[in-house]
């Protein structure tokens, strides 16, 4: 304990150094990634419209290399900031309770909120795998990766059962992450709300998370059941 007074920074922290500032950054970057999830899902659902429309949509996304990389950069910066803030806050939280409880019961928090530190890294691993499989094509179990023939890549990729299983599990965890993150971002960004409003926000977060994840999961399931060939 004697070290606590010495190694704590004694000067007032600036916005990024403060825990509150980092959480506001996490809320904003989380929101950007949420917007991406909506757009990405709407695009992905075109897979049901057949190979032609799905492939032409994929081609449309590549209509300008510069714009594509600007959009990608925004997403990458959001992901990086989100992770840096989380890691720094997690390190701080670990230090904030040097001696743990012999017994500790959770009485008022959701399962999703207590497992953010698990769902986050697993979703990150999933995103890396996902990019390697469908964007870069370096990992593509099953058949050959054909650049440009997105429909072929998706269908043959998901025909491998363990790829689909891994996607479904990771996406469910993303759903858990969203179930807490979607309402928590209002809290972190600082939108005061009454208790009924807070409950409504939590309900909406659950509904939106379920809809998004159901949409995403439907694709590997449709491939596995033979609906998409």
């Amino acid at each position: 304990m004697s070290a606590s007074a010495i190694d704590l920074q004694q000067r007032a922290p600036n916005f990024w150094q403060s825990t509150n500032g980092k959480k506001i950054v996490m809320a904003v970057t989380g929101f950007i990634l949420f917007l991406f999830l909506i757009g990405h899902l709407l695009g992905n659902l075109l897979v049901y419209a057949g190979p032609e429309r799905f492939n032409s949509y994929a081609e449309f996304l590549h209509f300008d290399g510069t714009l594509l990389w600007i959009a990608r950069s925004i997403l990458i910066i959001a992901v990086v900031l989100h992770i840096i803030a989380t890691v720094q806050l997690a390190v701080r939280n670990k230090k904030a309770r040097p001696v743990g409880y012999s017994r500790k019961k959770a009485i008022n928090s959701s399962y999703a909120s207590r497992t953010m530190y698990w769902s986050g890294p697993i979703v990150l691993a999933f995103v890396i795998f996902h990019l390697l499989e469908f964007t870069a094509g370096t990992i593509h179990p099953g058949t050959v990766f054909i650049p440009g023939d997105v429909y072929h890549n998706v269908v043959t990729g998901f025909q491998v059962w363990w790829v689909s299983a891994w996607y479904i599990i990771a996406l469910i965890l993303l759903g858990f992450h969203l179930r807490h993150g979607l309402w928590s971002m209002f809290q972190s960004f600082g939108v005061p709300h009454s208790l009924p409003r807070e409950r409504a926000n939590k309900r909406w977060a659950l509904v939106v998370a379920v809809i998004l994840i159901a949409g995403y999961i439907s694709i590997p399931i449709s491939v596995l059941t033979g609906l998409l060939k």
Partner: peptide, 14 residues
């Protein structure tokens, strides 16, 4: 609050 070495809020509600 930040200087005192408290952790950060993760909005879990405990």
């Amino acid at each position: 609050m930040n200087i005192e070495g408290f952790g950060n809020c993760t909005n879990i509600g405990e």
